[in-house]
Every structure is written in C-alpha cells, then in structure tokens.
Design a protein around this nucleic acid. Structure first.
Length: 477
DNA sequence: ATGTAC
C-alpha cells in the first residue's frame, strides 16, 4: 500500500487529511491487500483532491475497482451538501449514465447449443461500435420527450413492458432533466444513436446463472440456477459525451468566478445553487434519460429477436434491474444523525441501497436493491444486493466492475483479436465485434479479476453476493 | 467513454 494510507477496518483504508493540501475531509478506500498493491498513486491523489472541494460531506470514497480518471477517480463516490456543495462533470464522467441492466429469460443451457448463430443474429440486430447508428431516429419533439422522460417515453412508444421503467434506478427517469439545456450539437449526435451499444467496454452478453449464493434473495430477484440471462452495458453515446464536453467549458469559467480553488483543473465545478451548476444538472439528467432509453431499446430488440429464435414470449423476459454507473443525483442520507438532502456523485460506482428505502420497487424493498457488476468477456459477472452498511458507510454505494490492468494500446500490441476470440471459443464463449482490435483491447487478461473486487465489497459489507453469472456469448463495439 | 483533434 502507498505510504500514508492506513488500514482502519475490514478492507477499509484511510487517506488522511493532508495527503494533499487543503483536504476538507479524509478519504476512504475499500481494497484488499492484493488490490492495494495495484493502487495507482495518481488515483489515490485524485481521491484526495476530491476531498478539497467545497461542501463535501463525510469522506471522498474509493471502491475496490478504483483507477485514474478525468479529474475524479473512476470507482469514486462523493456527496456534497445542498447549500455549500458543488457539482462537477468530472465527478460523473464523459459517458453520462453509463450503466448496466440484467434481463431474465425462461431459457436454460440446453436452448443455447448453437451459440454462434444466436450471437450472429444479435450482432446483426443491435448496432455496435464507434459512430454506429440505429434504425430509429429521435428528433425535435420526440427527442425532447425522450430526454425529458427517459425509459417511460420509449416504453409508451411500444418498446418495452409496462414495468420496465419501475425496474430501473430512478424509475428510468431523472425528473430534473431539462432538454432545453442540451446543446444542438449534442442533440444532433444523439438523434440516430438511441438503441446502439457503442464501443470500448460496452457489451451485450448472454450468461448462465452458475451459482446462487443466497437462495431467498435470488428468488426475490427472479433468477434460478442454470437459467439464461442477458446483461446489457452501455451509456448515453455521443449525446452524453457532448453534454459533458459542453459543460466542462462552462464549469472552468464558473470555478474561477465563484473563487473555487482547484488542485487540478479537471475538477472544474460550480456551486449546486449556481446557474452553471443547475444548467449542468439539468443537461446531465437529460443525458441520463437518454441512456435509459438507449438500454430500453436494446432490450426491446433482444426480446423481439428471442421471440423469433425461441418459442418464448416477449413478457417472459422481464427486466431484473437497471443501475447507473456514472451519475450525480439528489438523495436523502443520514448525516450526523439527521436526514439530509445531498448530491451524490458516483463515477464508476453503483448505488447499493439497502432494505427499506422508499425509492426501491416494492418487490426489492425487503432485500435491498439488485446491484449488477459486470466482469470482463471471459470472466464472471455478479448479481449482488444493497445493504444497510452501504447506507451508513458510503452513501449507499458499491463498486461497478473489474477495472483495467493494461492500457488499450498495450493490449493491441500484446494480443491479436483473432487469438483472443479463439481462446474464448475453447471455453465455449462466442465473441463478435466490428474489429479484431476491439476484442484485443477487451481481452479478459486486460482486466482485474472481478471475483476479487466483488469479494471486497461483500466482506466490507457494502453489498451481498447473490449470484454468479458466467458468460456464454457476447457482442461488443 | 468519444464523429479517439482546438
């Protein structure tokens, strides 16, 4: 572990005041000894830098998948007070509401013997890759509706089941969204892209439930051992990216205007009460709604394809849950014994609300919310449940995934996509992507083991492991 | 992550 950072609990480390100058609160990191050895000095410094920002409450948090990011670390969580706090695009990330959802099916392994043809059909149906366009166009008032209402709008347009929106974090819709705050440039980028996967670590994957760790909760979540489910990981595409870019420029000016001292200009931010802060919030929320609509349309395409490939019905493929990995939002948390409204930034982190929270759908209110943690192409993904400990310790937050070990550039140099695909095929996993490089960059060996990250949050109490999901076939960008 | 460049 880096010097100055000390163990204070189970997998819990303190980044003390003074780790960088002007920290207002200390940092908290959740790491095993092994993951601690891999902690980048830059990521620890970024975590400490966040602790210097006005109005931060509690601690600046780092999850076990923490790594260096734009300004704020990826795998970071920070909450800010309503009156003195700030909002920062760097604390959300470029891919606003990048997130993941899990869909159940009535299928079992025996139904998926010809995985190559199933993955081929999915790859034909769902556009992937940088700049990819879908078959639908949302412009003018349709785009306003989509940005303003998220999942609910596309479901009303016939692209989902009535319950789908309720089974998303925030019910698939941030009500603070203001489509008028999304620039024309961002809108233009978004018009043809809703219903597309994108590139990088985004994917659609067919998985088998290989192990149930908690039968009662698994039952409440609607999954059984041996059943097939589908995980979709994507975000707000070029639209969200453009919203972030647009507002970072504004925020750089705003930080100066409000006299906020920044240890790193990538922490550009504005008071939550300022017009710049509220403008970003409204645009970010609209981009978040776009991302939920995006995952919803892909879900619709999956269901209609599976209806035609198998003898199953659209409504036999319910959404288990949909979580955001990159978002900032208002939430009520108990701070020093009092309920307080705070703006929680989660960047590469997942909400993990425990039992009893009013925001959760009735059927998950006793178990805590489903938390969906993707692994890499060849490794396990996990379904977990939120906990009361997460409410008390991390503003109801946990990790979001495995985290890279090597750069994309290094991956392309060291590996050939065709060899990675062949290796995966030997394990029974079929991979399709627009290019070999896309597969090389995402090779399982380029990611930390997801098991270790999930073990840490489980043992630290930030969430509970409910089920292990093993990959069978994947389409990537 | 991203029409991978202001």
């Amino acid at each position: 572990m880096l010097s100055g950072i000390t163990l204070t609990g189970i997998h819990e480390w303190e980044v003390p005041l003074g780790y960088v100058p002007d920290m207002r609160v200390s940092g908290r990191l959740f790491l095993s000894e092994t993951l601690g050895e891999a902690l980048e000095e830059g990521a620890a410094r970024q975590l400490a830098n966040v602790a210097t920002l006005p109005g931060i409450i509690g601690h600046s948090f780092g999850m076990p998948d923490i790594h260096w990011g734009y300004g704020f670390p990826i795998g970071g969580v920070a909450a800010f007070s309503e009156d003195e706090g700030i909002i920062s695009p760097g604390g959300v990330g470029f891919d606003i509401n990048c997130g993941v959802r899990l869909i159940a099916t009535p299928l079992t392994l025996g139904d998926l013997t010809d995985r190559t043809s199933i993955i081929t059909e999915l790859f034909k149906k769902i556009p992937t890759g940088v700049g990819s366009k879908g078959s639908l166009r949302f412009s003018g008032s349709a785009l306003d509706e989509l940005l303003g209402r998220g999942s609910a709008y596309v479901i009303e347009e016939g692209l989902g089941l009535p319950d789908d929106a309720l089974l998303c974090e925030e019910n698939g819709h941030m009500k603070d969204a203001d489509p008028d705050l999304v620039s024309e440039k961002a809108r233009k980028r978004g018009e043809p892209q809703c219903g597309t996967l994108g590139s990088g670590n985004h994917f659609l994957e067919l998985q088998v439930v290989s192990k149930i760790h908690d039968p009662l909760t698994a039952q409440a979540f609607g999954i059984t051992e041996g059943s097939i489910c589908c995980m979709i990981h994507c975000g707000s595409r070029g639209l969200g990216h453009q919203v972030c870019t647009d507002h970072i420029r504004n925020m750089e000016k705003a930080s100066k205007r409000y006299g906020i001292r920044l240890p790193d200009r990538q922490l550009a931010c504005a008071p939550l009460t300022s017009s710049e802060g509220q403008n970003y919030f409204g645009a970010m929320a609209a981009a978040a709604n776009y991302a939920w609509a995006n995952r919803q349309i892909i879900t619709h395409d999956l269901r209609t394809l599976f209806e035609s490939l198998f003898r199953i019905d659209y409504n036999e493929m319910p959404l288990i849950y949909d979580v955001a990995h990159n978002i900032a939002k208002w939430e009520e948390h108990i701070v020093s014994g009092k309920t307080q409204r705070v703006c929680v930034h989660r960047k590469g982190a997942t909400r993990a609300f425990g039992p009893g929270r009013a925001e959760l759908p009735g059927k998950y209110r006793d178990t805590g919310q489903p938390v969906i943690i993707p692994g890499s192409m060849g490794t396990a993904s996990f379904l977990l449940a939120g906990t009361e400990t997460a409410m008390q310790k991390t503003f109801g937050s946990t990790c979001h995934g495995a985290g890279r070990v090597g750069s994309r550039k290094a991956a392309k140099k060291a590996l050939r996509g065709s060899e990675v695909s062949a290796d995966l095929k030997k394990q029974g996993i079929i991979v399709m992507a627009p290019s070999g490089d896309a597969i090389a960059e995402e090779a399982p060996s380029m990611y930390k083991p997801s098991e270790e990250v999930v073990r840490v949050v489980d043992e630290a109490g930030l969430s509970r492991i409910i089920a292990t999901l093993m990959p069978l076939g994947v389409i990537k960008g």
